[in-house]
Amino acid sequence: MTGALTSTVRRFLDSDIWYKFRRDPIVIVATIIGLILILSSAFAPLFAPHSPFDLKTLNLSDAFTPPAWIEAGKAQFLLGTDDQGRDVLSTIMYGSRASLVVGFAAVLLSMVVGITLGLISGYFGGALDAFIMRVADVQLSFPAILIALLISGVARVVIPNSQHDQVAIYVLIFAIAASGWVQYARTVRGSTLVERNKEYVQAARVIGRRPLAIMFAHVLPNVLGPVMVLATLHIGTAIITEATLSYLGVGMPATQPTLGTMIRIGGDFLLSGEWWILWFPGLALVVLVLSINIIGDWLRDALNPKLR
């Protein structure tokens, strides 16, 4: 097994994509920044100077402390504090953790749903295909944010008030995923239509494999390339959608800060002079999404045989 692993690693180090990666400074920078943001938020408890959830360490008298390099700033609060005395830097770390969890989970969910429906649609065709694709068309004619708003709105009515805070994250993930699956389904369906007629799929049919086995063992690995590109770009969009929903007040509750809720809270103080409460979370969001998008764009070009 270790032999297979080292050969896979060697193949990767020898591959065109690794070669192109090493030659593209912008992507390398984007990847490094993206990794720093992701790792610092994933291991926020280790890196963050304070815990925004630990009420004992919060002191309201620390509220509205400006960033450390401004006269009234304190060294312990590098990027200042918010209205409740929470350290902005720590809150960004914890907040982007929630944003990333929501983003990744939503993308994963829409990928699973979209890929499955796309495979079924493309492989079997006929009425099933027509039905799935018409549903996708209808869905596509509404803006994603509207669908997400609708779902979280409905969830708010259906789910009892006391549980809102616990289920908020799941509702958010579901809402974003529900608006995102169509892209995957369409992409996968298109590639499946092409792959289905290739001779290796027909060979598998002659061998006697069942349709589901062919779909997942043969077709799926060959349609994943464009899906991975789509998914990378979608993570950026999903994080923005999360932030938008939270900003609009239908996302995560204030007790579980995300970048979106922080921006919303910060917005209240922008005019009263405490700009850092809005600016730093906003900057973190922009940098995070930008680096993910740069990686996604690069991946699309690197994997596109026509641009080689």
Binding site: E199, Y200, A203, P221, N222
Partner: peptide, 22 residues
């Protein structure tokens, strides 16, 4: 039919498309 399938097989035209590249 599954039993019979064992007994006949097919060779295709395009050697580049008839093997799963992955």
């Amino acid at each position: 039919v599954q039993q019979l399938r064992k007994r006949f097989q097919m060779i295709f035209q395009d050697p580049y498309a008839s093997l799963n590249p992955r």
